[in-house]
Amino acid sequence: MQAFAGEIGIVIIATLFLLLITVAPILFVLMHQRQYHRYLSDKEEIKNLNQRELLQSQLEIQNQTFQQIGEELHDNIGQLLTVALMRLNTLEDEVIDPDAQQSVQQTREIIRTIITDVRALAKTLDHDTVRRFGLLASLTLELERIQRTGRIQIQFQTSGETYSLGEQTETVLLRMTQESLNNALKHAQAQSITVSVDYQPTLFILSISDDGRGFELEDVAKRALDKAGVGLTNLYRRAGLLGGTCSIVSHPGAGTRVEIKLPRT
């Protein structure tokens, strides 16, 4: 009986030993995988943190540059245009010929339009505009400035109950919109542009669409380094750093649509 019990004990010990030999490598692999995944997660978090800090630095440099340009436009160019307008007013009083008077009046109206546009441009370049008035007002100012040029028809659509996304996020969104509008004006040969903003309860959507000539995204991606632009890459990267996504849909002859989605935080 004792011998039988001893044999059972040996079997149990052997079984436990075999289980230990079998399970130990599995546990080791699982622990290693867990540590590796944690390492990848920490690495990705550090990468995202560095990218966010880089974006913040770029944004600050860009804001300072735009601020200087805006001040230059407002203080110097604006003043020179105002002086030119005053001299035209004096010239109009001195000119007797009706045709010459009409020419002076037309020139005066052109300068007044330029002054208005310069002031509007100076405001959209100033990041304090977003801080003081918010994204919608800043977008409206930018679109009205483009509309006054008479080159293109602008539509601005909003839906949902407005909420703040934060000064930095809204400043980046304004710059992304300006970049998209600039692409449409320079390259698309569009007749109209539609900007829409949708404030959903958990999601913010901003889209910029044009009816221009469009392009193939694959062709742009295959361009040589000296011919490739960074505009599209900047849109993708900035949206990602804001915690959202940017999608671009374009086909030759069918226009282009840029859509930016950000979760509400």
Rank of each mutant, 00 (worst) to 15 (best):
F4G: 05
G6L: 09
G6S: 11
E7K: 14
G9E: 14
I10C: 05
I13T: 15
T15S: 15
F17V: 12
L19I: 05
L20Q: 08
P25R: 04
P25A: 13
H32M: 11
H32T: 14
R34S: 12
R34A: 14
Q35P: 05
H37L: 13
L40Y: 12
E44F: 10
E45Q: 08
E45M: 11
I46H: 15
N48M: 14
N48L: 11
N50Q: 08
R52I: 04
L54A: 12
L55H: 03
S57M: 13
S57K: 14
Q58D: 15
L59K: 03
Q64M: 02
Q64T: 05
F66Q: 13
Q67E: 09
Q68E: 10
E71N: 12
E72K: 15
E72I: 09
N76K: 15
Q79M: 06
T82D: 10
T82H: 14
A84G: 06
L88Q: 10
L91F: 02
L91Y: 01
V95W: 05
D97C: 03
D99E: 09
Q106P: 06
R108L: 00
I111F: 12
I115L: 05
T116H: 15
A120L: 07
K123D: 03
T124H: 04
D126T: 02
D128F: 04
R131L: 11
F133S: 08
G134C: 10
G134W: 08
L135S: 00
A137G: 03
A137F: 08
L139Y: 09
L143E: 01
E144S: 15
E144F: 10
I146R: 06
T149Q: 12
I154N: 03
I154M: 14
Q155R: 15
F156Q: 07
G160L: 06
E161W: 10
T162D: 09
Y163G: 05
S164Q: 12
Q168R: 07
T169P: 00
T171C: 03
L174S: 03
R175V: 09
R175N: 10
M176Y: 04
N182T: 14
N183P: 01
K186Y: 02
Q189D: 13
Q189H: 14
Q191M: 09
Q191W: 03
S192I: 04
T194D: 01
V195C: 08
S196V: 01
V197I: 07
D198R: 07
D198V: 06
Q200G: 14
F204G: 02
L206A: 05
S209G: 02
R213Q: 12
E216T: 07
E216G: 01
L217G: 12
L217V: 12
E218G: 05
E218P: 02
E218D: 07
D219T: 12
R223A: 07
L225K: 13
A228C: 02
A228H: 13
A228V: 04
G229P: 01
G231P: 00
L232E: 03
L232W: 01
L232D: 02
L232F: 10
T233W: 14
N234W: 10
Y236R: 02
A239P: 03
A239F: 05
G240D: 13
L241W: 05
C246I: 04
S247R: 13
V249A: 04
V249H: 06
A254W: 06
V258S: 09
K261N: 00
